[in-house]
Computed example of a mutant assay.
Amino acid sequence: MSAEPGNSFAGKVALVTGGSSGIGLATARAFLEQGASVALCGRSPERGHAAAESLRGLGDVEFFPADVTSEDAVARLMTNVLARFGRLDHAFNNAANTDAATGAGGFSDMTLAEFEGIVRASLTSVWLCLKHELPALLRNGGTVVNTSSMDAQLRMPGTGSYAAAKAGVEALTVAAAKEFAARGVRINAIRPGAIRTPMLEKNLQGTTKADRQAKLDRYHSLIALGRIGEPHEIADTVLWLSAPQSSYVTGQVITVDGAMGL
């Protein structure tokens, strides 16, 4: 469970990209429970509208379909969010391409198109969101949290393109934070470890139950806490980074991984 319902974000508007499942959905729920209105964004209208409907009883939420790798789509998203809610106070740039994360291969096997696709899905999309969110955030001050990955730190064989893109997200976060701190916008990133999301489930797929269990046991053996993380544990971190309690925190990459090591 995430934090108890309250009004820490009453009167605020939060945008959550990649909000129809996993970490994004958990974070949208947490924002709503704390009194914020929430704009959900995702590529699939069917999944997005279903996610918004599942949250409807918690507060004011609306789904906006958008492919955040397209600048036209991101610009249109922001126009629609501001038309619907009138402001933007918090942005969680969390959209991810599952195929990009799980399909990254060795350098010699990857085509230029595949490499550029992974970078566009994981890094360019964050830059596009920041570019179009910041004008609205600058009006009243606000926060941004970008999603990185432990792959940016571990840099394991076969993850080079994805790891490089996520490392780029971290560098972009710090640079942007320094540029906009004096103007009232705080920008941070989270670096999740193994979290129980659809992306992780895809990584755990095996030909048999035993194969899947072996992969799960491997994860557990690498994590000091001995378990997979839950989406709400990332959501709680995002809300803290968005709240006044973290008012002196900007330009940081916060690792939430249960102490993972190799």
Rank of each mutant, 00 (worst) to 15 (best):
A175F: 03
M110E: 14
G160D: 08
L137H: 01
L138Q: 06
R139W: 06
D60I: 04
L112S: 07
S148V: 12
S161V: 14
P65A: 14
I190K: 03
F180V: 11
T147V: 15
A167L: 01
G117L: 02
A182E: 15
W127D: 04
V174W: 01
N94T: 10
A163M: 01
A164T: 14
A121C: 11
L82N: 14
G142R: 05
E179Y: 03
L82W: 12
F63R: 13
G158A: 05
R139Y: 01
A163F: 00
L112N: 04
E170M: 13
K131P: 04
N188Q: 04
E62V: 11
R186D: 00
A100I: 12
F85A: 05
A83G: 13
L128R: 06
S70K: 05
G105A: 13
A177Y: 07
R56Y: 02
A96W: 00
G86L: 12
G193T: 09
R120C: 15
A95P: 12
H90I: 15
A164Y: 00
R139G: 08
A182V: 10
M78E: 10
E62D: 13
R139Q: 12
P192R: 11
E62H: 14
S122Y: 00
D99K: 02
P65N: 14
F85Y: 14
A189Q: 02
G160N: 07
R155D: 02
V126C: 09
V119I: 15
R56F: 01
R87I: 12
G103S: 08
E62G: 08
L112W: 04
A182L: 11
T79L: 05
A152I: 04
L88E: 07
F107R: 00
R155Q: 03
A167W: 01
F63A: 13
A121E: 07
R120S: 15
A167C: 06
E116Q: 15
A73R: 02
A91I: 13
L88V: 09
F180C: 01
R139C: 09
A83D: 15
E170R: 06
S161R: 00
D99A: 15
A171K: 06
G168R: 02
N140P: 04
G57E: 13
A177G: 13
A189S: 13
G59T: 08
K166M: 04
K166F: 00
L123K: 02
A165Q: 03
T102S: 13
D109V: 10
R120G: 15
T102Y: 00
L128K: 02
S161G: 05
R155S: 04
